[in-house]
C-alpha cells in the first residue's frame, strides 16, 4: 500500500491501490476552505464495513496524536488548519485501506500521508516526496517483536497525583515550547508517539543520524529546562519506593 500523494495541486490522485475504474470524480469543499475534485470510492459494502472497522479500531484512537502532529509541526499552532489537514489525511487513508492488514502499526503511515499532503497541497514545495510504501513501515513491527522486554516504570501510581495536575503539564509544555521547532517535533515523535528513528526519519525526510543527534540535544535541553521540576518528582518517586 502506498501513501497517496497529489502530483497536481488541488486534485486527488490515483496513486496507492485505489482502482481508478471503481471511482468517479465528485467536487467537494475540502481542507482549508478550498474546493477540489475527489475520486469517489466505489467499493463493496463488505469492504466498506471492513474499512470502517479498521477506522474505528486503529485510526480513531490516534486522532488526538494527528492533531498534535499537525499543530506542532505543520500549521504553526493553528488548530483549525490542523483540523482540515487531519480530516483530509483521514479521507486519503480511508481510500487507501484496501491492503491494510488489521493490527499493523499505522501511526507513522498516517503522519507521512499528512506531511505529504501538507507539502504538496498547502506549501506547494517543488521537491516533494512522491510515495512511501506501507510495507516499509510494517517491517518495523517485526523488529519490535525481537526486542527484549521494555524496562518497566517503577510503581505506576507513584506520580499520578502530581503528573495529573494541570500545573505540572503546563510546566512540561512550557519547557517543550522553548525548544526550536525541529527539536520539539522529534521529542514528540520519539518520546510521546514512541516511534522508531527510522520512522521519524521517513516522516520528517531527514537522515537517521540527524534524528539521533537532534533527539539527544533536545532531551538535554529539556532536562536542563525541567531540572527543578524533575528534582521534585525524583523526590516523590524515591519517597514512594521507600514506602
Amino acid at each position: 500500500m502506498e501513501v497517496p500523494v497529489n502530483k497536481e495541486e488541488g486534485h486527488a490522485n490515483e496513486e496507492g491501490n485505489i482502482n481508478p475504474h471503481k471511482e468517479q470524480q465528485v467536487e467537494e469543499s475540502t481542507a482549508m476552505g478550498r474546493r477540489r475534485k475527489r475520486k469517489e470510492l466505489r467499493i463493496s459494502e463488505e469492504e466498506r464495513q471492513r474499512r470502517l472497522r479498521i477506522f474505528e479500531k486503529e485510526i480513531e484512537p490516534l486522532i488526538n496524536d494527528l492533531l498534535r502532529f499537525a499543530t506542532t509541526f505543520l500549521t504553526q499552532g493553528n488548530i483549525d488548519d490542523a483540523y482540515d489537514l487531519v480530516q483530509e489525511t483521514l479521507l486519503r487513508a480511508f481510500e487507501s485501506l484496501d491492503t491494510y492488514k488489521e493490527g499493523t502499526k499505522i501511526k507513522a503511515w498516517l503522519y507521512t500521508i499528512m506531511r505529504n499532503l501538507y507539502i504538496n497541497e498547502y506549501r506547494k514545495r517543488k521537491a516533494a516526496p512522491q510515495t512511501v510504501t506501507y510495507e516499509e513501515y510494517s517491517t518495523f513491527k517485526s523488529d519490535d517483536d525481537d526486542e527484549g522486554p521494555p524496562p518497566q516504570m517503577t510503581p505506576a501510581g507513584d506520580m499520578r497525583k502530581e503528573v495529573e495536575s494541570s500545573y505540572l503539564s503546563e510546566e512540561v509544555v512550557r519547557a517543550l515550547n522553548k525548544l526550536p521547532e525541529e527539536f520539539r517535533i522529534i521529542v514528540l515523535l520519539a518520546d510521546v508517539d514512541e516511534l522508531k528513528y527510522e520512522e521519524i526519519a521517513k516522516i520528517l525526510g531527514i537522515p537517521i543520524g540527524t534524528v539521533r543527534s537532534r533527539l539527544h540535544r533536545a532531551r538535554r535541553m529539556l532536562k536542563k529546562e525541567l531540572k527543578e521540576y524533575a528534582k521534585k518528582l525524583y523526590r516523590i518517586e524515591d519517597k514512594s519506593s521507600k514506602d
Binding site: N64, D65, M159, V163, E164, S169, V173, L176, D191, L233
Partner: peptide
C-alpha cells in the same frame, strides 16, 4: 524512564 513517562503523561493530558 521517569523523565520520558512524565513527558508522555503531561503531554497526553494537555493534548
Amino acid at each position: 524512564i521517569m523523565f520520558r513517562k512524565l513527558l508522555q503523561r503531561a503531554l497526553n493530558q494537555k493534548q
